[in-house]
């Protein structure tokens, strides 16, 4: 029963975050908006991973498997933006 309550609370939190992200896109946030949008997306992912995917109950090896995905993704984005954002500087 406790598990059911946790899942329902997580679901309510996810829908609240969805409402928040839609509302934020209408707010005059300008250049800050992407940080807010992706901050909320990361928060939603954390809830799904931690509660729905049961990461809170999994052992270290399984958490490392998930963490490896994040690390490889970080390599992709960091190296890519290292290139893109440093183009066109005066030499």
């Amino acid at each position: 029963m406790k598990a059911v309550r946790t899942i329902l609370l997580a679901w309510a939190a996810l829908l609240a975050l969805l409402a928040l992200t839609v509302a934020a896109s209408f707010a005059p946030l300008g250049r800050v908006l992407p940080y807010v949008s992706y901050g909320i997306a990361i928060a939603k992912t954390a809830i799904v991973a931690w509660i729905f995917m049961d990461l809170r109950k999994r052992d270290g090896l399984q958490r490392i498997a998930v963490g490896a995905g994040v690390v490889w993704l970080a390599i992709l984005f960091v190296l890519m933006f290292g290139d893109i954002l440093t183009r066109g500087w005066p030499s």
Binding site: T21, S25, L33, P34, I40, A41, K44, A49
Partner: peptide, 15 residues
């Protein structure tokens, strides 16, 4: 589900 959570702000909510 998680992939959609990132697709939504990326495609629909860029302002």
């Amino acid at each position: 589900d998680v992939i959609w959570v990132f697709l939504y702000p990326t495609l629909y909510l860029a302002r």
